[in-house]
Amino acid sequence: MGFKLLSKLLVYLTASIMAIASPLAFSVDSSGEYPTVSEIPVGEVRLYQIADGVWSHIATQSFDGAVYPSNGLIVRDGDELLLIDTAWGAKNTAALLAEIEKQIGLPVTRAVSTHFHDDRVGGVDVLRAAGVATYASPSTRRLAEVEGNEIPTHSLEGLSSSGDAVRFGPVELFYPGAAHSTDNLIVYVPSASVLYGGCAIYELSRTSAGNVADADLAEWPTSIERIQQHYPEAQFVIPGHGLPGGLDLLKHTTNVVKAHTNRSVVE
């Protein structure tokens, strides 16, 4: 069995187990497998329904001669939608809004960016022009300005110390501490036991640490421990890039980060 097929099978099995364990909360999309990078042309966006009122959005972007996937989250909030992270750029984010209108038909009224990198804030200006209120932590807003990236308009308070959590509509926002970046936030959907790890969490097929220019490698494993301790009931975990899975993604990420750190020390 090929690795790609095995990865998709694991996603399907995880979703099936969740649907059985929580039949009222989960209505997993039966329309197909989780979209992969090879299936999404740059400039297009796919939506994948995880649970009743919960979707991931998947886009792709060219970077350094390669094409990478990027995940975000959409959560229903009454007759409105909360968006977590842009679709990595203005063109993708405009396509995301169009796809949401086509498939869901509810307005996106608020959006949260989970850290300051372009795959999370690139497209904020498109959201703002569409009347979406954009939010991020003060740290993310400051770092985005320093980096020359787009800056969300509103500040999220109460997320300055490791372990801080605040309720934001249908989700809980959690600051686990520094990891992929010093400002990275985690998003949890309690009604569906869905954990969105953003770039602080890796997919299972990833074996290298990737972009760690703004990471705190020493603190990252401790931050992941905080996530595990705060959300032990999480059933569906979405990484910032690639295929979702279960809580095993947290341990896998820790292993990859520690291996990278150990290699760096040896070198």
Rank of each mutant, 00 (worst) to 15 (best):
P176I: 03
G78R: 09
R263E: 15
D85G: 00
G123K: 04
G246R: 08
A259N: 09
R46N: 07
A144G: 05
R128S: 13
A215K: 07
E233L: 12
N71Y: 03
G197M: 02
E172D: 07
S56L: 15
T254H: 15
G89V: 01
G240N: 03
Q235D: 13
G89R: 01
I58D: 03
E147G: 12
A192K: 09
S56R: 13
H57T: 00
Q235L: 09
S155Q: 14
A95T: 10
A178F: 06
I201E: 03
S30T: 13
Q229H: 13
D77R: 02
A15S: 13
A111P: 02
E101A: 14
E267R: 11
A66L: 13
L156E: 03
V171H: 02
L204N: 09
V189I: 10
G105C: 05
N92L: 01
A15G: 09
E219M: 11
G122I: 04
G245F: 00
D214H: 12
F3A: 08
V54C: 03
A179S: 05
V124M: 12
T253K: 01
R141V: 08
W55L: 02
N262P: 11
K91P: 13
M1W: 05
D52Y: 09
E101C: 04
Y34V: 08
A215G: 13
V45R: 03
V54W: 03
N262K: 11
V28K: 08
G65S: 10
K102A: 12
F3S: 11
I84S: 01
L185Y: 02
Q228D: 06
H117C: 00
A98G: 14
D216C: 04
D214G: 13
I74N: 05
N211M: 14
C199H: 02
Y34A: 08
T140R: 03
S31M: 10
G78P: 05
P23M: 09
S155A: 14
G240K: 04
W220M: 03
V257Q: 03
N92V: 01
A111Y: 07
P69V: 11
P176D: 03
F63A: 09
G246C: 04
Q61R: 14
V54G: 02
H252E: 02
N71P: 02
K4P: 05
E150I: 04
N255L: 10
A95Y: 14
P138L: 09
G105I: 00
P23R: 12
F168I: 07
E44Y: 09
A15V: 08
G177S: 06
L156Q: 02
L47G: 03
D214S: 12
N71C: 03
L96R: 00
V126D: 05
I186R: 01
V11W: 08
S62R: 12
F26V: 15
V121H: 03
I238Y: 03
T254W: 15
P23I: 09
D119I: 01
V132F: 01
Q103K: 14
Y34D: 07
V237C: 05
V108G: 00
E233F: 12
